[in-house]
Design a binder for these strands. Structure first.
Length: 770
RNA sequence: GCCCGGGUGGCGAAAUCGGUAGACGCAAGGGACUUAAAAUCCCUUGGGAGGCGACUCCCGUGCAGGUUCGAGUCCUGCCCCGGGCACCA
């Protein structure tokens, strides 16, 4: 569905005179492929090429105009050599770093699990409860680019994207404006981030994330045991279930207090897993009166709830039955000298006061995290780093790339807890490229999203072995003219690609900052009431349909079943309609070839350039030009379903007018070509074409011919339809109104009453108000 | 919970800027062709009421209101479905 929609557009653009490069590639170097291989018990190095061959066969049968000379596979060492090069570019530019991060860990299988492999907190394979484990991981500093990634989204000159995609990215980056505030404690200042400094006076407790470094110093010995037990319990849960919002709040009191700088009161410091170490400072000020989570926490543990925002008819003494989260129309109360200020003004005033008194600063935060690119798995590009006992981590020199993934018979993660690559001793132990001393390789592989973050740069330059992308080729073909993809990639692939391109631009490797200036998202296919997906098992294998109905009928049905950008409902019966249509076109073309004189050397591909007095009946001629107009406009905007409907209407017109002449059918074949390339190619020849239909050019229309001489006008009385009039286009208002009033039905409804008002919309409607 | 889509005949869907709701297609019914069936071709098909009939009238775009000469389209408040994100301070 997605590739056919892209192919229709590419073929259309080619007929419109553009030189079109439509590449295709295969991205199967990651956990999903590895898991699938484990499931089938086949080594991925054997399975993946087999699957690629099958996909390629299917894509070819579907008739995609793909340039197979430039096909890519991210699993190919000739490709991932440059993925590793890309890693090194970022590493050398200081954009890659290592730090400890939590991963899902199955204690039974002794392996790292992806989030989607954790089902209700348990390992999907063995059912053991999953834990968190801290491991050293490689990260890319995408957060450094958060502002730039956000700013370009708003720049219409750089980004022409479907709004649904830009909105998703904006939300994902999640910029928030707030303040970082220091709460002094016995273990030093506790830094807290909040987007609501206006509620500072309502902060009646602090909550630290269980991993927060100040938890230990703030917990006196008698409470240590309880605290450690809680922290252990939290760590024994997986990352997914920890972040579920609607569960009961849990927590432990440290035994210490901190000073609220605004109220001057000492407030208790708690620890709870609803505070995440990864966001903000890993500590929050609990404002139960004005935050739902803090409210639930305060209720559970009997902590004081102080209202600091009051709406109309409320004051500082009004009870707080539920947290008031909104600010519109609220004013500060119980907030010292800031009381009675409107909330928004109070926010600014409190931030100014915090900065003046050096209690805190206004700050911007993003929910976007740095991109963790390491995977403790086998099936992926090895991260090109060597650890040397004397030099530390050293990047593999470019001349030694690629670091080839060794073929390991048993590639499954085992109970050593390290990547399977560590078991391959000859591969694992290497000399340090810097000092020649003993070293060992990084055994993590990189995320598949790194493979796909730059593939578009490789496509035009795929045959170059000595450079990732050739400067001249890149200048000719990039950035990508039109990118058509699914919205499931809105936040991951599309964001990572933008980030990588931005870094490469900054490092001087590419001239542009944004890889996909024009992006259109296609919809998703629904079958049996749910999204068609492999996991739901409601997928359709194209082979059978192509076998039964033909590739063109299948393509056209996919494009006809709904608006491309919204998707649609797949039902087997629907395909018969387009197949019948193609059969009729087939018959029409053959009859036209038989009934009208043979081809003259110059086949008109542009009927509009011929005099209007040509041999076509007026109604057919008009319909033809209307059809060209509509199919052109609709194909350009990816409204393929209505473009196909317009061609069907035209065929219906030709049939009812019994018009079987080449001049009427040829332009139809040209318009059909992007949708049904095989049939169009054949019929073009039947009609006398001596070269490929794709060597011809798209038909043009004559606006004057497309316009009907007569129009039907709706006649309304008080807005209700009472009749229809056929009048010459552009008839004067007085004439139309006069004729409307003469209508029998109109007279009956006007019923002799005076006409108060007459509304006339030229060529459309006349409305008499009585 | 939040953010995006969407709700129109039996079904998939059309409908420029607010201007004739249901294009196009599926399914269904009737007919032609055929020994017969399939295929093909022709006709009918939103619901209701009336008329022998050409036709006529009423209702109808998830629900309730509103704006307007006129609302599928705009506004307010709800309901339902699909997708995504989810304790982000």
């Amino acid at each position: 569905f997605a590739f056919t929609g892209a192919d229709v557009y590419g073929r259309f653009k080619r007929l419109r005179g553009d030189t079109v490069f439509e590449p295709m590639g295969f991205d199967a170097f990651g956990i999903h492929s590895e898991n699938f291989a484990i499931k089938l018990g086949i080594h991925p190095a054997e399975l993946i090429p087999r699957n690629i061959a099958n996909f390629r066969r299917q894509l070819t049968r579907l008739g995609g105009m793909f340039d197979w000379r430039h096909v890519l596979a991210t699993t190919d060492p000739a490709y991932y050599k440059w993925t590793q090069w890309l890693f090194l570019q970022l590493y050398q530019a200081g954009k890659a770093y290592k730090k400890k991060a939590a991963v899902n860990w199955c204690p039974h299988d002794k392996t790292v699990l992806a989030n989607e492999q954790v089902i209700n907190g348990a390992c999907e394979r063995c059912g053991t409860m999953v834990e968190q484990r801290l491991l050293e991981q490689w990260f890319f500093r995408i957060t450094e680019y958060a502002d730039r990634l956000l700013a370009n989204l708003d720049d219409g000159s750089k980004m022409d994207w479907s709004p649904s995609t830009t909105i998703a990215q904006r939300n994902w980056i999640g910029k928030s404006q707030g303040a970082e505030i220091e709460f002094p404690s016995d273990a030093g200042p506790i830094r807290v981030y909040t987007t609501r400094p206006d509620t500072l006076f309502g902060g009646t407790f602090l909550v630290l994330a269980p991993e927060h470094p100040l938890v230990d110093p703030l917990t006196p010995a008698p409470r240590r045991e309880a605290m450690d037990a809680y922290r252990k319990a939290v760590a024994s849960r997986d990352l997914v279930s920890r972040k579920v919002g609607d569960k009961e709040k849990t927590g432990v009191f440290t035994g210490s207090t901190a000073l609220n700088p605004a109220t001057g009161q000492r407030i208790p410091v708690w620890v709870s897993d609803y505070v995440l170490m990864q966001y903000g400072t890993g500590a929050i000020g609990g404002v139960p009166a004005h935050d739902e989570r803090d409210f639930a926490f305060a209720r559970k543990f009997g902590l004081p709830i102080v209202r600091v925002l009051a709406g109309p008819g409320q004051d500082g003494a009004t009870p707080v039955p539920e947290p008031a989260v909104e600010t519109e129309g609220f004013r500060l109360v119980n907030s010292g000298s800031f009381s009675e200020l409107p909330a928004s003004e109070g926010l600014r005033a409190i931030v100014a006061w915090l900065e003046r008194e050096r209690h805190g600063t206004g700050q911007v935060r993003y929910r976007l995290h740095d991109w963790c690119i390491s995977r403790q798995r086998y099936w992926g590009p090895p991260i090109p780093i060597i650890y040397c006992e004397t030099c530390g981590p050293v990047g593999v020199p470019e001349k030694d790339l690629p670091v080839v993934l060794p073929l390991i018979e048993d590639f499954r993660p085992d109970d050593t807890g390290v990547s399977p690559l560590a078991r391959h001793k000859e591969w694992y132990h290497v000399k340090c490229p810097q000092c020649g001393g003993p070293g060992r390789r990084e055994t993590d592989v990189s995320d598949t999203f790194l493979d796909s973050s730059w593939y578009f740069l490789r496509y035009p330059s795929s045959e170059f072995g000595d450079r990732p992308f050739d400067a001249a080729r890149t200048k000719t073909w990039l950035p990508v003219t039109t990118y058509i993809g699914g919205n499931e990639h809105a936040v991951l692939h599309l964001l990572y690609s933008r980030f990588i391109t931005m870094v490469l631009h900054q490092l001087g490797h590419v001239a542009f900052e944004e890889p996909f200036p024009k992006l259109r998202a296609h919809g998703l296919i629904v079958k049996d009431g749910a999204k068609m997906s492999k996991s739901r098992g409601n997928v359709v294998i194209p082979d059978r349909y192509i076998q039964q109905w033909g590739a063109d009928a299948f393509r056209m049905y996919l494009m006809f079943l709904g608006p491309f950008q919204e998707g649609g409902d797949f039902r087997d019966e629907g395909i018969t309609g387009v197949r019948r249509f193609l059969d009729r076109v087939w018959v029409l073309a053959h009859e036209a070839a038989r009934l009208t004189p043979g081809a003259s050397p110059g086949i008109p591909s542009s009927p509009g350039s011929r005099p209007a007095s040509a041999d076509l009946p007026e109604a057919v001629l008009r319909k033809l030009h209307q059809t060209i107009r509509k199919v052109t406009a609709d194909t350009e905007t990816l409204q393929y379903n209505t473009a196909i409907a317009a061609m069907m209407e035209y065929v219906n017109e030709l049939r009812s007018a019994e018009c079987r002449v080449r001049r009427a059918v040829q332009p139809l074949i040209l318009m059909l070509a992007p949708y049904a390339p095989h049939v169009a190619e054949e019929l073009w020849t039947v009609l006398g074409g001596s070269r490929s239909v794709f060597a011809e050019s798209w038909p043009t229309y004559d606006a004057a011919l497309a316009t009907a001489g007569e129009v039907e006008i709706a006649v309304q009385v008080n807005g209700k339809l009472r009749g229809r009039l056929t009048v010459p286009r552009g008839s004067p208002e007085a004439e139309v109104v006069r004729r409307a009033q003469a209508e029998e039905a109109v007279r009956r409804f006007v019923d002799g009453k005076p006409i108060k008002k007459t509304i006339y919309v030229a060529d459309r409607v006349v409305n008499l108000v009585v």
